[in-house]
């Protein structure tokens, strides 16, 4: 017990979260789009079609490359898959007027277009497969419903489609109690700190459980490294561009417009039935942010065949487990 207490204290005193090195896989930037960039993780030997990954806008992209041995991009690269990853960057106060049309029809569409061009030049690939995680997946789904030829196939991970099935989050994000306009008018962007606190409050006891798990496994060096890396990633939230956040919460959480319809983006109705890319929907069994039912709702709306599959883990934990890379590789090889 005393030895464990000593290990625990020594570990915390060494400031492990600040020292944690995440997102270390070598990559090069092939496209700049304001603050967003497309990073290419090139494999040593190309064996498969390139994939494009649309990450969430709430945290950083590094959850897909957390640590060696716990990295989705590393696993895909090892299997010979070139990975083009969209890193949305960090919006500043000057980006508060960037709306969803600029993000989806602008940044996301352009990033996919430049990826397609680069993949053709570099790898001779005519088309790419697209992967979306969380809200990055929601945006990707909307984009591919509007521009079906941009990707050959679509894989979504923990991507909300039926927002009213998103558990506690949908209960909180309702127009009666959530002062959306006041918050955005006051802050400009939706602040990263507020986002972090909101997610922490989704499971208040989860904060304590985090410290307890460290206590229980403080003698395991690998676990300590993973714990520190997860903490580093978790603490690194980004602001959400104000106008885009206003539209996102209003349309998705208040109106559940992807299910109910009637959402006009850039003068055009968002209609998921226009999607042509066959889709794989992956959900995490213990996901309290996007429960499987919220993700699998795509089956009722998408215009092409949808295969649904549940993986072990939570909303974030699923990214550092072994099941996700295996499921993606199976899909890529199919």
């Amino acid at each position: 017990m005393l030895q464990r207490a000593e290990n625990y204290s020594r570990f915390l005193v060494s400031d492990p979260v600040a020292k944690a090195k995440i997102g270390q896989s070598p990559n090069r930037i092939i496209h700049h789009d304001r603050k967003a960039v497309v990073r290419l993780f090139a494999p040593a030997e190309v064996k498969h079609q390139p994939v494009f990954v649309s990450m969430p806008l709430i945290n950083t992209w590094t959850i897909f490359d957390l640590l060696p041995g716990r990295s989705v991009v590393e696993s895909l690269n090892k299997a010979g898959v070139p990975v083009y990853l969209l890193d949305w960057g960090r919006p500043g106060p000057e980006d508060s007027q960037i709306n969803l049309e600029l993000l989806i029809d602008g940044t996301l569409r352009r990033s996919m277009d430049r990826t397609r061009r680069d993949a053709k030049t570099r790898y001779g690939a005519d088309q790419v497969d697209a992967i979306g995680y969380c809200v990055g997946g929601t945006y990707l789904t909307i984009l591919l419903a509007r521009y079906p030829d941009l990707a050959r196939r679509l894989a979504l991970l923990a991507t909300p489609i039926d927002f009213h099935a998103s558990g506690r989050l949908s209960l909180w994000a309702n127009p009666e109690t959530f002062p959306l306009d006041e918050v955005i008018d006051g802050h400009g962007n939706f602040p990263a700190e507020m986002m972090k606190q909101s997610f922490a409050w989704l499971r208040p006891m989860g904060q304590l459980a985090k410290w307890k798990s460290l206590w229980d496994k403080s003698e395991n060096a690998d676990f300590r490294t993973l714990w520190a890396a997860m903490e580093a990633w978790n603490n690194d939230n980004t602001d959400f561009a104000g106008a885009a956040y206003r539209e996102y919460v209003r349309r998705c959480y208040f109106d559940n417009a992807l299910m109910a319809g009637g959402w006009k983006l850039g003068g055009e109705t968002v209609d998921l039935s226009k999607g042509k890319a066959p889709a794989l929907v992956l959900a995490a069994a213990d996901d309290h942010i996007v429960p499987p039912v919220a993700a699998f709702a795509l089956k009722d709306r998408w215009g092409a065949p949808v295969v649904a599959r549940t993986l072990r883990g939570g909303h974030v934990g699923v990214c550092v487990g072994k099941e996700l890379p295996a499921a993606l590789l199976e899909w890529i090889r199919a």
Partner: peptide, 12 residues
């Protein structure tokens, strides 16, 4: 909600 709105207003 009121707390968040008040904080945002004060910040603005």
């Amino acid at each position: 909600g009121k707390n968040a709105a008040g904080y945002a207003k004060a910040r603005g």
